[in-house]
Amino acid sequence: MHGFDVRVGPISYRIGSAWAAPIAVLRRLYAGYPAPADGIATVTARIGPPRPWRRWIRPQVAIEGDHNLPDTVPMAFGHALLAIEMAMNMQVALGECRHLLIHASAVERGGKALIMPGDSGSGKSTLAALLAERGWRLLADEFVMIDLATGRLIPFPRAISLKNSAIAEAEARVADPARFGPHLSATPKGELRHLRPNAEAIARMDEPAEPALILFPSYGFEPASDGVSRSELFMRLTEGSTNYIALGEPAFDHVLRIVETIPAARFAYPDTDSGIAIVEQFCAEAGL
């Protein structure tokens, strides 16, 4: 078994693969990330052949680890890096029970955090990636973590997965080509490329931020924006969380505090530039 230990925010991973190549790619993608504290990884994510012979004969990649899901389909060997990313995600989604998880991206400026919830295709990853190249600090892509003791946002800056048109936009704005993973084509999510957060995001990954604004982006529509009622915000944040119920009453308290105190809105945008402009305008109004 080929292994790689790495810490991303509060999660100390031991990542395993039956094949050496995917681990080598992962090491390059996560260059500069710290090793687990005290050398002890407490979360295991791994990929391997679904059947023994699948290791050599038309190899397939199964997504495994401490926690597994019944319905997952083995993936093509060429998409091993995506499979590793999903194995890493699954351990957080099914295993994390210290911080409240919100399915969103987030960036920080001046100690204040902008949270962008949304399912895949809403553009939340692209916006976060590009804002992070304009002076914002990347806090999270996919999983925002709320500390149940303080209510603050704990960064979980894993590599950002950019899809289809977002790849070219990021390539145009990110100077250092070494921050990009390989170009994966014909994956279940279409064209895919991973982008490593910049050095600042990695260096300051243990610096929490204060949630200050929640924006729901919708990519591909004419510019428009609208308020989000507190009850809908409560529903969207909790239904989008894989551990809200498991965390019990403290999670209820924090989501209630968030919906009562933090402004929220949704906005549509036809392209990334207009999206960023709308976000900056909202942030100015909210004092970020």
């Binding site: 997504i63 899901l69 957080v92 989604a93 399915h103």
Partner: peptide, 27 residues
């Protein structure tokens, strides 16, 4: 009301769609 016709709406856990992209599973 705001919740349409359902008088009770219970928060259901989001099955790990973030972890495993819905697009790679099958039914």
């Amino acid at each position: 009301g705001a919740l349409g016709t359902a008088a009770v709406v219970t928060v259901r856990p989001g099955i790990a769609h973030a972890a495993v992209s819905a697009l790679t599973c099958q039914i």
